[in-house]
Computed example of a mutant assay.
Amino acid sequence: MTGVPASAAGGPSGARGTAPAAEAPGATAADVARESVRDSGAGEGTTAVQPGAGPREGARAVRGGKIGAAAVDQASVWNVANLLTMLRLLLVPGFVALMLGNGGHDPAWRSFAWAAFAVAMITDLFDGHLARTYDLVTDFGKIADPIADKAIMGAALICLSALGDLPWWVTAVILGRELGITLLRFLVIRYGVIPASRGGKLKTLTQGVAVGMYVLVLTGWLASLRFWVMAAAVVLTVVTGLDYVRQAIVLRRRGIAERRAALEEARG
């Protein structure tokens, strides 16, 4: 029996030690493609692309609706998740200009600034979800997404404090916590990843609502309400920050213990 060459099957599938099912008598080219996808570990909803196929042929080779589209966009920085992140970065200077427009206390200008801030917060919810759901995670997104998050929040807090609407110590606590936890994550990444907790997500939501209420020019009971919302945001900021420090310490100790155990096992 004459086998199908490895180049036609999308890879050296014969390396497993058994002949692929696609090499059975009467096997079609589609059978070979399906077998090569299974051998290479490709996800469901994709088919093999023949060597030398151009971008258009490669795009047509992907099937499976949204999952297939994600597989095509995955290799490109210009996917929808990264575009939303870029939009947030571009909104930062526009937001600052609107916040400081006409002296910084004009209700109309502040309303436009609130709209820009709201768009940034909404895109923050969607870009990460899209990246994880449709496998659009890229190195650019991993770096740019947290930068965009902290840039818009930091710009809002600094503008509010500069205008006298928010005490500087509140801005210092929130920004200090965010920058400190980001640095802490990098320091312990060799031992593992600190996952985002429910408390951290609630903190982010509360911060966004509180800062958004301060961006608007509110009076009466709404002005009193925003004070308590900001107070809750500060408490959650401190509590979740301490919890992340605890997790980092536990993660580091566990990682060191595992390394020592591995070294002792290797020596023994």
Rank of each mutant, 00 (worst) to 15 (best):
T240I: 09
E258F: 05
T28D: 09
K142M: 09
V137H: 03
R226P: 00
L157E: 01
R246D: 07
S224L: 13
S111E: 15
T240S: 09
F95A: 05
A97F: 14
A15N: 07
V77G: 06
A156Y: 02
F126N: 03
V92I: 13
M1A: 14
A108K: 08
A223Y: 00
G64R: 02
L263D: 04
M230T: 02
G54D: 14
D243M: 11
V209F: 10
A210T: 01
R254P: 02
S36P: 06
A97S: 13
V217L: 11
G180F: 15
A21G: 13
A162E: 10
I181S: 05
E258C: 05
A232R: 01
G128M: 00
L157T: 02
A113C: 05
A113Q: 00
T182V: 13
G128I: 01
A116S: 07
P146K: 12
G65L: 10
A118K: 04
T18I: 15
A151M: 12
L251D: 05
L89S: 08
L216Q: 06
I194V: 15
E44R: 10
R259G: 13
V62T: 05
G199S: 08
G180H: 04
R16K: 10
M99L: 13
P167E: 04
G200T: 03
A6I: 02
L100E: 14
M86V: 15
G199F: 06
V188K: 09
L236H: 03
A108V: 15
V96S: 08
V96W: 08
I249L: 12
R132Q: 07
R190N: 14
G208C: 09
A108T: 15
R132Y: 11
P195S: 12
D124L: 06
